[in-house]
């Protein structure tokens, strides 16, 4: 099987701007993109730089953009890509991180963010002599998050990080969940307060890109939502994100549909809301897109309320 790789090249020692180069590779039937890249590096052009090691999706080294999506090169099978996405395969370094050379990016900020969530067990009270007695289910819930191999694919595709580099990001927060949900950890409250801060869990826009990018089914966004739920349940979360959610729920529960105006008031609170919302309100008024100031319930809103009550919300 042959394929053409279009690779983004960049060498800071070279005067050339970043550019693309095409390479033809010959691969076995179940060849991966990584095998193609290794063939290029070993047989065609030894100046190509990339990180790689295990060839089996466990070391997390070879994450890169393949046809615009962040994936592990060792797990991206060329035959599948050719069939679904066409013959030319474009390969670029990960996004949201500065490029060092070719497909190698600087992951310093990635590691610093992981480190900032205090990613180590902080036990409560004296430790047992042997092991902590905990249920298999509790451990396996955490094992899902521990599947994370720190490859960076989620961070590379994160749409929030694209506009706000301070966001802790999906990888660090998935790691944070792993400790916040560990029955052996004694610092849950402190953790939830920490992750509840600006740049934390409430900055996620739920775009699902990290869920799609993750090669190990960690579903970082779901873990972020798990932390939000824990913080709300513990009464720790008092910020706008939490108020926004409550406003949403209350509106639909009582009237059967979204009360946009009420939601905004609830989120920002008095006396802030008129000031925060005036500019957007004026713009929407000019475009005749202002939501009704007096919200009306839908027919049968009582039944909607019953659904909520049956769900215990």
């Amino acid at each position: 099987m042959d394929a053409t790789f279009k690779i983004r090249r960049f060498d800071p020692e070279d005067k050339q701007d970043p550019h693309y180069e095409d390479f033809n590779v010959e691969l076995p039937e179940y060849g991966s993109v990584l095998e193609g890249l290794l063939d290029i590096r070993e047989q065609q052009d030894g100046t190509l730089s990339l990180r790689c090691s295990c060839k089996s999706a466990i070391c997390g080294s070879c994450s890169m953009k393949i046809n615009g999506e962040s994936r592990l090169a060792c797990k991206a099978m060329v035959s599948e890509i050719k069939e679904l996405e066409g013959d030319l395969i474009t390969i670029e370094p990960m996004g949201n991180m500065p490029v060092i050379k070719d497909l190698v990016v600087d992951m310093d900020s990635f590691w610093h963010k992981v480190e900032s969530v205090e990613p180590y067990l902080q036990p409560k009270g004296p430790e047992p002599e042997k092991e902590y007695l905990v249920s298999n289910d509790q451990m396996m819930t955490l094992a899902v998050a521990m599947n994370c191999i720190m490859c960076g694919a989620c961070v590379s595709d994160c749409t929030v990080l694209e506009v706000d580099s301070n966001f802790l990001g999906p990888a660090a927060l998935a790691k944070a969940f792993r400790f916040a949900a560990d029955p052996r950890d004694g610092a849950q409250e402190k953790r939830l307060e920490m992750y509840d801060q600006p740049d934390g869990v409430w900055d996620c826009t739920r775009c699902f890109m990290c869920v799609q990018a993750c090669p190990k089914d960690v579903a970082p966004m779901e873990r972020i939502m798990d932390i939000r739920s824990m913080a709300v349940e513990k009464g720790i979360s008092k910020g706008r994100g939490m108020k926004h959610i409550q406003g949403f729920i209350n509106g639909v529960k009582h009237s059967g549909r979204l009360d946009e105006f009420g939601l905004a008031r609830k989120t920002y609170g008095f006396p802030l809301w008129p000031f925060m919302l005036a500019p957007m309100g004026i713009r929407r008024l000019l475009r005749k897109r202002l939501p009704p100031i007096f919200h009306k319930s839908i027919a049968g809103a009582k039944n909607v309320k019953k659904i909520f009550e049956n769900l215990g919300v």
Partner: peptide, 24 residues
């Protein structure tokens, strides 16, 4: 070995468990 495995567990390794909650 057992002492080291227990200390790894206390550091945070999420070992699979027996129904009694011990390391399986």
């Amino acid at each position: 070995a057992p002492g080291d495995i227990y200390s790894l567990e206390r550091m945070g390794v999420v070992f699979n468990r027996t129904p009694e909650g011990k390391i399986d």
